[in-house]
């Protein structure tokens, strides 16, 4: 019987086998299972918000239909495509690492980062428009324009502020839709930012040539996380932007 230390001495250092694992396979599968378990908790975490969404939408169908009109479908659609592209490049990064393609790996990680940055950029443009229109659910909440961009209030001849008859009047619970909107997209955006940080860390490690066919666990597990971020957006997009 050889001790664990002896056993590890025979293992190629390229596997970066930690002392508490029996074999590279066990190390890889353990990390992967850990990530899957974490992803399940992530999905359960988001499910609280999806439940809030479902309960409010089932009670206030008209409100959701009206408020969804404030969201820019074109920007949402572009963001969906950008995130799907980043998922592709992340999956490709895993392939590159598995095959030892160092240049491809670094390129895929950079493209993923750029896509993630683009997603957040578009998201901030959208947030800016909403906040500018008084749709951020704080103490000063109150829409200035209806979903078609028509001012909700106008000044009459006497100088008094009156409701604009040309605008579609805002439903009374408009604020609850935007509470849900900002919580769901905000939590998702936070996940994108965290993902960007981790992918940047992977890029720095990839530049030092730390990954290869024998050791690519961190790339693989981060990719799994990144795909879950994409999965959540796949549901958020039609549920928030595409309501009749």
């Amino acid at each position: 019987m050889s001790s664990a230390a002896d056993h590890h001495a025979e293992v190629d250092p390229a596997y970066r086998l930690a002392h508490h694992f029996e074999s590279p396979e066990q190390q890889f599968e353990t990390g992967k299972f850990g990530m899957w378990a974490f992803l399940v908790t992530e999905i359960l975490f988001f499910s609280g918000l999806f439940t809030a969404y479902s309960v409010y939408r089932s009670n206030e169908a008209d409100l959701f239909s009206y408020a969804s009109g404030y969201l820019d479908t074109t920007l949402g659609c572009i963001n969906t495509a950008v995130l799907i592209l980043s998922s592709l490049t992340m999956a490709w990064a895993v392939r590159c690492a598995q095959l030892g393609q160092q240049r491809g790996l670094k390129f895929c990680l950079i493209v993923t980062l750029l896509c993630a940055g683009g997603f957040m950029g578009i998201k901030s443009v959208e947030y800016h428009h909403k906040i500018h229109n008084g749709l951020f659910p704080n103490a000063h909440f109150g829409a200035h324009e209806d979903p078609d961009g028509v001012p909700l209030h106008i000044t009459d001849e006497s100088g008094a502020t009156v409701a604009n008859p040309a605008a579609r009047p805002a439903p009374e619970n408009l604020r609850s839709f935007f509470g849900i909107y900002f919580c769901m997209t905000g939590l998702h955006g936070l996940h994108v930012l965290i993902g960007m940080g981790v992918i940047f860390w992977l890029y720095l490690r990839a530049r030092r040539g730390e990954f290869g066919p024998k050791y690519f666990g961190p790339i693989d597990f981060t990719a799994l996380y990144w795909h879950v971020v994409d999965l959540i957006w796949i549901f958020l997009f039609p549920l928030l932007y595409l309501i009749h």
Binding site: F28, I84, S87, L88, A91, W92, V94
Partner: peptide, 15 residues
């Protein structure tokens, strides 16, 4: 040796 490698064709097809 550690995991399945996804062919480029499949990746692009899914995309």
């Amino acid at each position: 040796e550690l995991a399945h490698v996804m062919p480029v064709k499949v990746l692009l097809g899914v995309f």
